[in-house]
């Protein structure tokens, strides 16, 4: 599953169109869904980006309940300003370092896959940065790019995900010289990277694919039955799953038939403990 966070509707619209995403009934944010993708429009600013990102990851994915999910990634996509003119307008950059201007904190996504983008650093500000701010010395740039969302996005996302699951792609929209904000121009910038973005997303999906459990669904089901019928404690349940996985890794065989234990009706705790010990020995020593 790929989650995308944009600040503005005009940044979202080319992505919504390209992937045929449909508007969700979410009351809190503009949210769009499609096949294996979900996009949220956060609004401008790092606080808004953090709130939207946390909302998406905590509630939409159920990470709040399960405490971890590896088969997903989240990408912040938007336009930004560039402090220098090394790259032309419309150039997409994959951010390898985010600096929060107000706190000075730095954040680093893990870039583990080949990608088609230039890379650069990005500084997130609480306010719009203009050329005159830099020229007058009011702003001393620490990075290649400036935006207003990335640090909030990254902080929120990294509470839930690994750094290889968090990406920031910024398209150079201006050199801090914008006079009138032009939605069409922003949308055009994002449209221009859709081909590259598509390939990148496929790479990210491949990297973040969940590795299969050594236990098959049938085996897990059987073990659940054993836990229930033997009324195992939480610790015993963990030990049972651990012993089952070790059995498979060690022997390379399917789990032995545990039906006998799924049909046992435990009346006193000691019986369960005894049966559990029998299974444990069977799995560890057979």
């Amino acid at each position: 599953m790929i989650y995308i966070v944009t600040a503005l509707p005009c940044e979202a619209s080319p992505i919504v169109r390209k992937y045929g995403l449909k508007r969700d009934s979410c009351r809190h944010f503009p949210l769009y869904r499609g096949d294996g993708m979900c996009l949220i429009v956060s609004g401008v600013g790092k606080m808004s980006a953090a709130i939207a990102t946390a909302y998406l990851l905590a509630y939409d994915t159920g990470l709040g309940q399960t405490g971890g999910e590896k088969g997903l990634a989240i990408i912040n996509i938007g336009v930004c300003g560039a402090f220098h003119q090394r790259y032309p307008i419309g150039t997409p950059l994959l951010v390898n370092k985010v600096i929060d201007h107000e706190t000075g904190n730095q954040y680093f996504p893990d870039i583990l896959i080949e990608h088609p983008f230039e890379e650069g650093s990005l500084e997130t500000y609480n306010h719009v940065v203009r050329q005159e701010d830099v020229l007058s010395g009011r702003v001393e740039p620490q990075a290649d790019l400036a935006d207003m969302e990335a640090s909030g996005f990254f902080q929120a996302a990294s509470r839930f995900l690994s750094p290889h699951q968090i990406y920031i792609i910024k398209v150079i929209g201006d050199y801090l010289d914008v006079v009138d904000f032009d939605r069409q121009r922003v949308a055009h910038c994002i449209s221009g990277i859709m081909g590259l973005l598509d390939g990148f997303i496929k790479g990210v999906e491949g990297l973040c694919r969940v590795e299969g459990d050594v236990l098959t669904p049938d085996e897990r089901q059987q073990l659940e039955k054993v836990k229930k019928s033997l009324r195992l404690t939480v610790t015993q349940s963990h030990q049972l799953m651990d012993a089952a996985r070790r059995y498979k890794l060690r022997t390379g065989r399917q789990l032995p038939d545990l039906t006998e234990f799924t049909q046992t009706q435990i009346k006193v705790k000691a019986e369960g403990k005894k049966a559990f010990e029998r299974i444990r020995r069977l799995l560890l020593y057979e």
Partner: peptide, 8 residues
């Protein structure tokens, strides 16, 4: 950094 994936 928190939650790094050693294997990957």
């Amino acid at each position: 950094r928190p939650h790094q994936d050693f294997r990957r």
